[in-house]
Simulated scan of single mutants.
Amino acid sequence: MDQNEFIKTYFNLLTEHLIKHGYDGNELIKAVMTGTFAMINNDSGKSNEDIFWETFSSLVDTDEKLVKTFEKFYEEVFDQVEKVTSKDEDVVKIIKILKEKGYTLALATNPLFPQIATFKRIRWAGLNPNDFKLVTTYENSYHCKPNLKYYQDILETLNKKPDECLMIGNDIGEDMIINKLGVKSFLLTNFLINNVNENVDNYQNGDYKKLLELVNEFENLNEGA
């Protein structure tokens, strides 16, 4: 998925939705952006959801009607964003193989969205939220990428040690930073994000097909269980 196209489409649709319901779309989008940056920098001990709405409400008058307008957006309009996302059968195969081999799966997506939006994005990819023991959303997360505490929270939630895990991601700056905790990684070159201009060969890397070959070689944890 092209992240820039996703963000552009998302904000265009959200702005149109807010204007349709009688709000100043540009003013609210600015507040949304400020709330988003507050979540990215969250180190308060509060959930990202709480930090977002505290920040948002400090900038605009936030009543129940406005909150419901946002909820309605995710329920009825957000699905239109699917047109700029993609589904890859290799990804579906990878998740299926890992589940069959008994691995614990977590979807460590940057928790800037509510659960309803993140779960829809999972389904657009041909997957099921139940495929994962943990899906990070703004409701259940207290930090964001690239804060290492975000990854530490996941390890604690899953009760896993760093050397028991593999991080698969396409963003060098936000995903590969997990190596600092002792977690191994695989850098996906599909839709690669390299804002830090780092050499991709510093990491084990490849496209979906190479990752599929890799997981096919993984040990089956269910054998002998």
Rank of each mutant, 00 (worst) to 15 (best):
Y10E: 15
Y10K: 12
N12R: 12
L13M: 00
L14R: 01
K20D: 03
H21Q: 09
K30Y: 06
T36P: 00
M39S: 07
D43F: 07
D43T: 13
S44V: 10
E54C: 03
F56R: 00
F56V: 02
L59V: 03
D63N: 15
K65M: 12
L66N: 03
F73H: 07
F78R: 02
K83Y: 00
S86E: 15
D90P: 02
V92G: 02
V92S: 01
K93H: 08
I95E: 14
K96L: 07
L98K: 05
G102E: 14
Y103T: 02
A106P: 08
T109V: 13
P111R: 13
T118W: 07
A125W: 02
G126W: 04
K133H: 03
L134A: 01
T136R: 08
E139P: 01
C144A: 15
K145W: 07
K145N: 05
K149A: 10
Y151T: 07
I154L: 15
I154W: 07
K161E: 14
I168R: 06
D171H: 11
E174G: 06
V183M: 12
V183E: 09
L187E: 08
N190G: 07
L192Y: 11
I193Y: 12
I193H: 11
V196K: 14
E198F: 02
N202Q: 13
Y203K: 12
Y203T: 11
K210H: 10
E213P: 03
L214F: 14
N216M: 15
E217P: 01
E223S: 09
G224C: 10
A225M: 05
A225Q: 05
